[in-house]
Design a protein around this nucleic acid. Structure first.
Length: 329
DNA sequence: ACCTGTCAAGTCTGG
DNA sequence: CCAGACTTGACAGGT
């Protein structure tokens, strides 16, 4: 099994490279000159994109091929305050430069729209905002010149007292979206509501690949074994490739998220680093049926946690490091 | 240099 | 119907 490791949004190694500098609505409205306020927003956006490019360069230098972009590139994007000013075309040069770099270096990049994007909602206004948010994320990937292999990962959402009904609503709302948006979505099991099996069933139904979060699974399950679920989860990736017959996504390995609990009192919170032991056990079990796997590390120490995990996995039997961020098992 | 409160948005619980 | 918890990093404003 060929394994590539990646991390999320920001680096603890590269200094002063925030990809998510922001500006609040209050602050925006405090500026009396609207033109100046928009110029400031655009400048912050350009800076965030530039810092992200610096991170991709750092990644290349350390063989890191998997990366998740911050969803906060552009402060207040989608806020009515911005009127008809569209920040994505305004920053097209910066987006293009970032996307080209990722593409040239065959990097796998993604977004994770945050928990305000909920397709299971019964509220029409929330649904509309959620779809708009997904449209914007997709528009950013398009502005980067990236294809359908660059995806947006989301959760199923809330249960509202009736999980079966919420799941039905999710499926309905998901399939009502434009196909290019649907195709860009992966579904991840969450730590409180929709567990791995429930998420898997929905992913199968809507034809979306599933991202297994092994930490979420550990704190939210009905006794299912992740290893037992794995063949079906892997199949959602193959099914997607068959469904759309596109080369880029056919070669997309399944992706999992890994993190470790902060402590016994906070079992759901993310620790600074990732413990290699339980992960190694899982990897060892799925290796015989999994040719390729990408692992997204969700730890406070970001890329430092990645390098530490590499070191720890290298010490395990049957593991060979291929470079600074990929392994053979 | 450090600390505290606030932030566009969501759901869930409890009053 | 509404307030607060949940949970995140960054910023603004204070000391």
């Amino acid at each position: 099994m060929l394994i590539r490791l990646g991390y999320v949004a920001m680096s603890t190694v590269v200094k002063n490279a925030s990809p998510s500098k922001t500006m609040t609505a209050t602050n925006f409205s405090k500026l009396l000159d609207r033109e100046a306020a928009i110029r400031k927003l655009q400048r912050i956006g350009a800076e965030n994109l530039h810092n992200t490019l610096r991170l991709l360069k750092h990644n290349r230098a350390h063989d890191i091929m998997v990366f998740r972009f911050s969803s906060r590139f552009i402060p207040l994007i989608g806020h009515e305050m911005l009127g008809d000013w569209d920040p994505i075309p305004a920053l097209s040069a910066e987006f293009e430069e970032l996307g080209s770099y990722a593409k040239q270096n065959n990097m796998r990049v993604s977004f994770h729209p945050d928990h305000f994007t909920v397709l299971s909602t019964p509220r029409k206004d929330v649904l509309q905002k959620s779809v708009e948010d997904l449209e914007r994320h997709s528009a950013m990937l398009n502005a980067m010149g990236l294809g359908m292999e660059a995806m947006c990962n989301i959760h199923v959402g809330g249960a509202y007292g009736d999980k079966a009904k919420a799941a039905k609503r999710f499926v309905h709302n998901f399939t009502a979206m434009r196909m290019p948006i649907q195709r860009r979505i992966t579904l991840e099991n969450d730590d409180k509501t929709f567990n791995a099996l429930e998420t898997l069933e929905i992913a199968e139904e809507v034809g979306a690949p599933m991202v297994l979060d092994v930490h979420h699974h550990a704190v939210n399950n009905h006794g299912e074994d992740a290893v037992q679920l794995w063949p079906r989860i892997q199949e959602t990736w193959l099914a997607r490739a068959r469904l759309h017959l596109d080369e880029a996504s056919a070669s997309l390995p399944p992706k999992i998220h890994v993190s470790s609990p902060k402590g016994e009192t906070e079992p759901r919170s993310h620790a600074d680093y990732v413990e290699a032991g339980p992960l190694y056990t899982f990897l060892k079990a799925i290796a015989p049926i999994t040719p390729k796997l990408d692992i997204m590390i969700e730890a406070k120490m970001k890329d430092s946690a990645l390098f530490k995990l590499m070191e720890d996995l290298k010490g395990q039997e049957g593991v060979t490091a291929l470079d600074e961020a990929s392994l053979q098992l």
